[in-house]
Amino acid sequence: MKPQSPVARPASLQLTPDGRLRHFLSIEGLPRALLEQILDTAESFANLGGPAVKKVPLLRGKTIVNLFFEASTRTRTTFELAAKRLSADVLNLNIGAAATVKGETLLDTLRNLEAMHTDMFVVRHADSGAAHFIARHAAPHVRVINAGDGRHAHPTQAMLDMFTIRRVKGAFEPLCVAIVGDILHSRVARSQIHALKTLGTGCVRVVAPRTLLPAEVETLGVEAHVDPETGLEEADVIIMLRLQRERMKGAFLPSEHEYFQRFGLTEERLRRARPDVIVMHPGPINRGVEIDSRVADGPRSVILRQVTYGIAVRMAVMSMALGTGTDAS
């Protein structure tokens, strides 16, 4: 084993000693084979859901807690459905988004939930690192999945995006993927970049106004474009990011209207990409801000397929993490 630097720690926290998934906190540091295993496992679950059997008894008797410190409808709902289709029991805790939860309070919450013999926490939190923190302090049998932490990571979203791309396009190597929007504040973009690079995507571009591009973003192995005309050129996949309205208040952008004029995905702009391009969006979409309705509802859009696949990917991650010796005696 190589000595591990502090940056490599997330992976060691996420994996069992024999390299299987324990917690799913970030894409960073996970090996390609593991990401492919998640996609393959999700493929098995995507084939379920036919007319007869949607639900399998795999996680019967397990209790999964959706621990949401930040509002979310789609992510929480798909996690809940995923758990229920695996026959687990689900507890939804929506802890007020306004309350700043301090470390001590968080740990107390954790201890109380553990005392109820729960097996998995699905954590959404406005602070970066919250899921890692919980994973480090949780009881040994408890598994943690990051459902979005601050500006840091949203790994299940990235994996459902990878699943969608693989289903539609096949191999990652020949693809050119453009991620367009608020790269600076986006945990989704960060996780997508790590996943795309790990899976060997030929070309990954980030396209945004200079104020919304992180400094030295190229060190992640991506091309940065401030001009969408070049950024979308010959793209196979376009991933639009949600423009959060609160960003307008700061110095980042002059107005929604101007953003749409410069960066909004219109049919005209779409023509710069390859004819078989697919358009993705993690949702919820802002029509007329980052994407035109004709594109969002058009034939190139796979936005609703992403939602469907999200359930299969979350089933895969949950069953993989809970399948690694949680009943160790």
């Binding site: 496992t41 084939n47 069953s319």
Partner: peptide
């Protein structure tokens, strides 16, 4: 039968489970 095994939590999941096919 991978999703129905009783040793799942001990040995984990078979990575590629084929869909079961039964006529309606």
């Amino acid at each position: 039968i991978s999703f129905y095994r009783d040793d799942f939590s001990r040995i984990g999941l078979n990575p590629r489970v084929r869909p079961s096919q039964l006529p309606l």
